[in-house]
Nucleic acid binder design. Structure first.
Length: 477
RNA sequence: CGGGGUGUAGCGCAGUUGGAAGCGCGCUGCGUUUGGGACGCAGAGGUCGGCGGUUCAAGUCCGCCCACCCCGACCA
């Protein structure tokens, strides 16, 4: 399975990415163009992502529910901007039960409309608010160009949909969930992100405004890794989501939505992966520690396997895998598990059994430098400490990489050069014309207007107009 | 949808002027191996992407179609 050498990132980042997914057995191409099968190892990673997020959603008062896959076509048409944004990429069902349907059904590209419809039924009084619901679901968007995890016709995600009494509560929720994503990305996935607002052209179709967490991949391209939208009263008005306030006045709700998808797996691969394969953050890794037994004959095999049982017991609190395949050599297994990004590897051989020791190797430090011989007695403590250290190191390394590839661009020439080697951070007058010119000339788009602004003012990198707004520009996935 | 590329065993590929479908890896069995990608022997595995044409004869030549990948326009 992993017998062949991996293309290096420098040779061809795209090939490297595609190969790593197949060799690490995360996913495979499905027989339908643009669709993928997420294999057990990839899905296990997704499950850990789900757990980490779901815990945070529950902690912030949200409940899970499930809404239908099919949405009446007419629902999509109720919000003007929304239908314009999504109609080119809708999958439409026209037949069912052998007959043509009276009204075509769209396969949900996102669920604002059908959830809005339900909310209008459920919400009658200010006492019903806020409504805080999330769903874990698959959605379909008919994309032109697809890539495993990053853009497939069908993808898995969670979409939160909330309804509030006031504009400020909705804004508060939108930001709260963005920061949940930020916390998750940084502390679970070890991916540094920049939080900010999307430009008018980049925002969600139908939103008042959108917030994003933007991450830099190993090739310096940007990846929008999670988004949170303040929908204002747009959907409330389109779907008649109204409530009676304390003064018996009929009011429209303020709604939000926020989502993070299996695309995030792509972010993990492209942020941490190296030329040996995947590198997974310990907190999300399906397997945190792999044990590779080494022996030369039957007697040694018995002794070693007995010893590994002790190791398994000592590491009961971790996600551990014993690789007791008899037909593979240790060398093969080392490479195999490195390809799969397992954070720690423990080697147990006759020498270790004799001395009551172990060899422990960390995935993020290649070769001998990452290897260490430890006493069995210190094992549990050591593994625990190393996993924490690897988690921190990955974040530190990714942050250093990102920061060294962001350039303050004062002039348009600066910006053009910057987006060829990383991201540009520049003053921008917020006009669509200047934004469009940058995209036209460089293929880079505005990634976000970050929350952290220095309050100073300068001139727009394109038109020279005075502004106090700075934004990130980068080529993006 | 525009540009480029590729379709031959599970994967990667070779296949000469048209003349009996091959190689490496993987897979199965047996044996020897195992501290950084082991080895021997014996096997299994094919509608050469599809349709049509030329020819005594097509993986190979011609036409059409399809699929997938990569680069653009669009997007999580």
């Amino acid at each position: 399975m992993t017998n062949e050498k991996l293309t290096t990132r420098d040779e061809n980042f795209s090939d490297w990415y595609n190969e790593i997914i197949q060799k690490a057995e995360m996913a495979d191409y499905a027989p339908v163009r643009g669709c993928m099968v997420i294999k057990p190892y990839g899905w296990a990673l997704w499950e850990n992502i789900q757990k980490a997020l779901d815990k945070r959603f529950k902690e912030t008062g949200h409940q899970n529910a499930a809404f239908p896959l099919f949405i009446p076509m007419s629902f999509l048409e109720k919000e003007k901007e929304h239908v314009e944004g999504f109609s080119p990429e809708l999958a439409v069902v026209t037949h069912g039960g052998g007959q043509e349907l009276e009204e075509p059904l769209v396969v949900r590209p996102t669920s604002e409309t059908i959830i809005g419809h339900m909310y209008s039924k459920w919400i009658k009084s200010y006492r019903d608010l806020p409504v805080l619901i999330n769903q874990w679901a698959n959605v379909v968007r008919w994309e032109m160009r697809t890539r495993l995890f990053l853009r497939t016709l069908e993808f898995y995600w969670q979409e939160g949909h909330t309804a509030h009494a006031t504009a400020s509560e909705a804004e508060e929720e939108t930001l709260r969930m963005l920061h949940v994503y930020e916390d998750f990305a940084v502390n679970e996935a070890a991916i540094p992100v920049i939080c900010g607002m999307k430009s008018e052209t980049e925002k969600f179709a139908g939103a008042l405004h959108s917030y994003t967490i933007e991450a830099m991949m190993g090739d310096t391209k940007a990846l929008q890794s999670g988004t949170s939208h303040n929908l204002g009263q747009n959907f409330a008005k389109a779907f008649d989501i109204q409530y009676l306030d304390e003064k018996n006045q009929l009011q429209y709700c303020w709604t939000t939505s926020w989502g993070l998808s299996t695309r995030f797996i792509g972010a993990i691969i492209m942020t941490h992966g190296d030329d040996q394969g995947l590198v997974l953050p310990p907190r999300l890794a399906p397997i945190q520690v792999v044990i590779v037994p080494i022996f030369h004959n039957v007697e040694e095999r018995e002794a070693v396997l007995q010893y590994t049982q002790k190791v398994l017991t000592a590491l009961a609190d971790f996600r551990v895998k014993l690789d007791d395949r008899f037909e593979q050599t240790p060398g093969f297994k080392f490479n195999d598990w490195e390809m799969r990004g397992v954070p720690l590897r423990i080697e147990v051989g006759p020498r270790d059994v004799a001395n009551d020791k172990l060899v422990i190797a960390r995935r993020d430090v290649p070769g001998k430098e990452g290897k260490e011989i430890i006493e069995f007695g210190t094992l549990t403590q050591k593994v625990s400490a190393l996993l924490v250290d690897i988690q921190q190191s990955l974040l530190k390394k990714a942050t250093a990489f990102r920061d060294s590839h962001i350039f303050e661009a004062q002039t348009y020439e600066d910006l053009q050069q910057s987006v060829e080697k990383g991201w540009a951070f520049s003053y921008w007058c917020e006009s669509k014309e200047c934004e469009a010119k940058i995209k036209e000339d460089t293929k880079a788009t505005t990634r976000c207007i970050p929350f952290d602004q220095d309050q100073k003012s300068g001139s727009c990198v394109v038109c020279g107009k005075e502004t106090s707004t700075k934004a990130y520009f980068a080529k993006a996935y």
